[in-house]
């Protein structure tokens, strides 16, 4: 049994993980603004980026509340190094081409819907409240990414090829979403966190269905990479953080 204090510390770390996931993916999606394939999509994908930045702020805000040591949402986003970031690797992969981003989005969106549905039941009222807000967004995100992957997969030979390449390149990073470490196990046992290991079957059912409609092949499970939760990242994250943090770190202690 964890003490109240241990539980709070674990919840803090857990919340930070979820904040990192949201920030890093939101950053990637925001890179599409002014780069979309046409104007309407540019605006629409911008909305998704905004949802994620908003979500990061909610998680970081709660983490700051739990830490109660003067740190703010911005301290978490702007003053930690790549070894301290604990996002899942799939979120930090570069935006790639449009197929790559939409395939990643689909894998993450299905996961997010399953995850948030469980987090709604969290005994931690704040996490449950964040989940309640976030799941509405994620339902819409999934509607978009599902349609995109189907349209692109079942579009031209080129678009199908691009989607399949993306899927094959990203697939090995999807397994990490369902891994549990000791911290997550403790929180799942305490009814605060989600047991993500139980989500993969449902996730796979949905993936199979969509990929079939998109005429894409489910990749083999013959490679997998993980480590994000322990700060063991790809090289991409360092560059992302360099850009994200440059102004903030150049003027230490300033208000913006």
């Amino acid at each position: 049994m964890m003490s109240e204090q241990q539980l709070q510390q674990a919840t803090f770390e857990y919340t930070l993980r979820l904040g990192d996931d949201a920030l890093v993916l939101g950053h990637r999606i925001s890179e599409w603004v002014r780069n979309g394939p046409f104007l309407e999509e540019d605006i629409a994908y911008g909305n998704v980026a905004l949802d994620y930045i908003g979500r990061a702020r909610m998680f970081y805000g709660y983490a700051a509340e739990l830490a109660d040591d003067g740190r703010t949402e911005d301290s978490f986003a702007y003053t930690r190094s790549e070894r301290e970031f604990s996002n899942l690797l799939i979120n930090e992969l570069p935006r790639g081409d449009f197929a790559y981003s939409q395939v990643r989005q689909l894998l993450v969106d299905i996961y997010a819907n399953l995850f948030l549905t469980r987090l709604l039941q969290s005994k931690d009222a704040t996490l449950a409240a964040i989940a309640a807000k976030a799941i509405k967004e994620s339902r819409y995100h999934l509607r978009r990414s599902r349609e995109w992957v189907i349209r692109l997969g079942d579009g031209t030979e080129e678009s199908q090829h691009r989607c399949q390449l993306a899927l094959d390149d990203i697939w090995g990073y999807s397994h990490e979403m369902f891994e549990m470490d000791a911290l997550e196990q403790q929180l799942a046992d305490a009814g605060i966190g989600v047991d993500v290991s139980s989500l993969r079957d449902d996730w796979l059912v949905q993936i199979r269905e969509i990929l079939a409609e998109a005429t894409l092949q489910l990749p083999a499970d013959d490679w997998k990479v993980s480590g994000g939760r322990d700060g063991y990242h790809t090289e991409f994250l360092g560059h992302l953080l360099t850009e994200l943090q440059i102004v903030h770190r150049s003027y230490p202690g300033c208000q913006w």
């Binding site: 046409f38 104007l39 309407e40 999509e41 605006i43 629409a44 909305n47 509607r143 978009r144 349609e147 349209r151």
Partner: peptide, 20 residues
């Protein structure tokens, strides 16, 4: 107005472009 490939997509873009 807006451009979209079909009515379903048009409806989503209308949501994203005209109801921010």
């Amino acid at each position: 107005s807006l451009h979209a490939e079909d009515p379903a997509q048009a409806l989503e873009y209308a949501r994203d472009c005209y109801t921010r």
